[in-house]
Amino acid sequence: MPQSFFGGVSFILSKYWSLFLRGTVITVVVSLSGTIFGFLIGLIVALLRTIPVHKSDKPLKKLSVRFLSVILSAYIEVFRGTPMIVQAMVIYYGGLSKALSGLHDIYKGIVSAIIIISINTGAYMAEIIRGGIISVDSGQMEGALSIGMTYRQVMFNVIFPQAIRNVMPSIGNEFVVNIKDSSVLNVISVAELYFMSKSAAGAYYRYFEAFFITAVIYFILTFTVTRILRFIERKMEGKDSYTIHGSQSYSKASIHITSESKTITGGGLK
């Protein structure tokens, strides 16, 4: 066991690389799936919470919308108002562990982690997406209603795509937070990166070196994810160029407009 810092780091890496690798894979799997499922939960909750109620609606609808909104805001308040590490303990020992007792330990940990992260992220996502929906100009809704689209059609075809685009940075942020915060799930023995690092560090009592490696891995993960998300955001902007079609009689003529230049393709322009 070398005494120097870099010696220690390379020793631990060469001896325990597979622990770090498995921990990293599990961290990525649980935080990615937790973010995706959390997004879906948030989407549904935000949808339900933005259902408009008109004076002319039936009393039953008014009542159920009100009831639903109380339940959903309770969910949001509770899960945003308590730490995930505590939520993990309560949910896991409050029944989840027993419910998953048929599973192998590794899978039990992964499934528990995904469930807990999803529920927790869902609460945040619900508010993020609701904000995104509200931020879409009300003219978009009116324009769509005015051609006869139903509320549901407007939401799915017009409002949602714009709302999601607007909140992409916040959604990405949640993913990055989840990569880091999934580390607290070591308290219920999920074999993620932090949990594995502890095992690697504990064997030779080289905590500094082991967790230095862990920090580097976490940073590489979040940095990469941030870049990927930035790329996706740009894709979602839509193309920054379009093709000008010729008149119908000269349909082959087209001019391609980009932000920088104009290029003429095809023939037919006389």
Binding site: Q140, A144, I147, M149, V158
Partner: peptide, 27 residues
């Protein structure tokens, strides 16, 4: 009814997430 009574707005209210053609097709 709304489909039969078209409306043109001061602020246009074209769907920002669609091309001009898609705006005319979706309804």
């Amino acid at each position: 009814y709304r489909a039969k009574v078209g409306m043109v707005f001061q602020q246009f209210n074209l769907f920002n997430n669609m091309t001009v053609l898609q705006n005319c097709v979706v309804g």
